[in-house]
Write a protein that binds this DNA or RNA. Structure first.
Lengths: 172, 172
DNA sequence: TCTACAAGTTAACCTTGGCTAAAATACTGT
DNA sequence: ACAGTATTTTAGCCAAGGTTAACTTGTAGA
């Protein structure tokens, strides 16, 4: 069974179709020009390339901070993946100059890796806080943030940040 | 050069670090339990599996609607990939029962494919409208929506929808 | 100390999603 | 009708990210 079959959103929507597709997005809405359309997909593919690397680096930074060291076992457990997979990915991270380590020893971030981790962490935090400020439950916000963070442009990040800030003021 | 190096978000943030990391997310913030953490990543991997399929199916539906037929050439141009890639992916879509076609002929969606396309389209529309309602520019909203749509849970979708609706009322 | 168990690595394999180049099929215009 | 062009498919290549199984290394306890 395909994952999407679990999603079951269609049923939940049929009662208010007008809210879903206002005029500017309904049937008559034309397709964007091919080249622009292609650029959108290219952006997504581009994001995919670094997504996993960012997740690793971010996780390694978190482990270093909270546990004092970053071990493959922990990464494997937290990523829900086998140790062999971690080992292979770490090799790649090393070849990209993001991570350093001696064989059979725990992992460290290079300067480049730390920069990436810091950026990733910021982005993650902004998206997570935004979702919570919107009213999304903590559990869901965490899951969604994990997936969304790599696809949010700087423009949108700034807007999310502003929203979160204003929302906080409103509560106070 | 890694794609993330183009992003350059760190510089933009250093002036207001307090807005970025409030107490509950700052250094002291503990890691979630391993198994829950693993589930988050699993959810992302799961989304990745269907992402591309959904994009294809959604695009095929759009082409059928706006151009009357869905040809590999158009898909290749719009996705920004080679025709060979399209051909291979379409083979997979057929084996999954989402698309049907005769060799060297244009493509159709099965019932299952249409259901997926409809769901995908709805989700896409909700996210896009939400971003625009937030104040994101059209160009950016399109790009971000394309990447984000596959990672937004139903709970968040409903909240986005409500926000967009209320925002619309406020404007009126 | 040395033996067992835990942790890390390596090898061999799979699928997906890209690519190019070449072959097969469909379409169009004279 | 058929020659030439456009489209689609096939074959062979590659890298990424996953797996299991077997091997190496590190470490802690008797």
């Amino acid at each position: 069974m395909l994952p999407y079959e679990h999603f079951g959103y269609i049923g939940a929507m049929t009662d208010s179709p007008n809210d879903v597709t206002p005029d500017r997005l309904c049937k008559a809405d034309a397709l964007p020009p091919s080249d622009q359309h292609a650029q959108q997909y290219a952006a997504v593919r581009n994001a995919h390339e670094t997504e996993l690397l960012e997740d690793y680096v971010e996780l390694i930074a978190d482990l270093l901070e909270h546990q004092g060291e970053a071990r493959s076992t922990d990464i494997a457990a937290r990523m829900g993946v086998s140790q062999a997979t971690v080992s292979k990915t770490v090799t790649r991270l090393k070849s990209l100059g993001l991570v350093s380590s001696k064989p059979y020893r725990s992992l460290f971030l290079t300067e480049k890796g730390e920069a990436m981790a810091a950026m990733s962490h910021q982005r993650h935090a902004i998206v997570l806080q935004f979702l919570r400020a919107l009213g999304v439950s903590d559990r869901t916000a965490r899951i969604d943030a994990e997936g969304m963070e790599h696809h949010v442009s700087q423009e949108t990040l700034e807007i999310m940040q502003r929203y979160t800030r204003e929302q906080g003021r409103r509560d106070a």
